Simulated scan of single mutants.
Amino acid sequence: MIDTAGGAGGEGDAFAAIWRARVHQRFPDSQLRQVADYLATSARRPGTVTAELDPYTVHRLLLAVGLDPAELRQAVTRLADAGMLTQIHDCAGQHLGVHTLTMPPHPVTSTLATDPGA
């Protein structure tokens, strides 16, 4: 797992941009891309990799992406199941909680791992 502490200034912003690109690669034809875009830009605290999905943010996200609440919950679950989101605080049904943008380790094929010139 990649360290997602965020750090000073632009590190969190740079990580969020890379995270969006990885989600786009993983889910090329999906509304998950739109959800990821919103999480990485509008829902994320600037300079960090943390997105709080409070009722106001969820409402704005639903309007922006055109999902219903159940579809949004499913999208967040799919991103979490793919290793792209980690819930760091559960708010007991009041909203979708606080999440950290995360990335699973990049898979390396055995050819790339053994051939130094590849």
Rank of each mutant, 00 (worst) to 15 (best):
D90T: 09
V98M: 13
A80Y: 03
V76Y: 00
D81N: 15
H99V: 08
T102L: 10
V76M: 07
L72N: 09
A80V: 08
I88D: 07
L96V: 05
H95N: 14
R73H: 11
M84H: 14
L72W: 02
T102D: 13
A80P: 03
R78M: 10
R73M: 06
D90I: 10
T86P: 05
R73S: 13
G83N: 09
D81M: 14
V98W: 02
T100S: 14
M84I: 03
H99G: 13
V98K: 06
V76Q: 00
T100L: 12
A75H: 07
G93R: 08
G93M: 11
R78V: 07
T86V: 10
H99M: 10
L101E: 00
T100R: 15
L79T: 02
T102Y: 01
E71C: 05
H99F: 15
T102F: 05
V76H: 00
V98Y: 03
H89N: 07
G83W: 01
L85A: 13
H99R: 08
V76W: 00
H89M: 09
L79C: 07
A80G: 10
V76K: 00
A80R: 11
R73P: 02
T102C: 15
G83F: 04
A80L: 05
A82D: 01
L79M: 06
T86K: 11
R73E: 12
A92T: 10
A82Y: 02
C91G: 04
R73D: 14
D90P: 13
A70Y: 12
A92K: 05
A82I: 03
H99P: 14
Q87Y: 05
G93T: 11
G93Q: 13
A92D: 11
I88T: 11
H89Q: 13
A92R: 04
R78C: 08
L72P: 02
D90Y: 15
V98G: 05
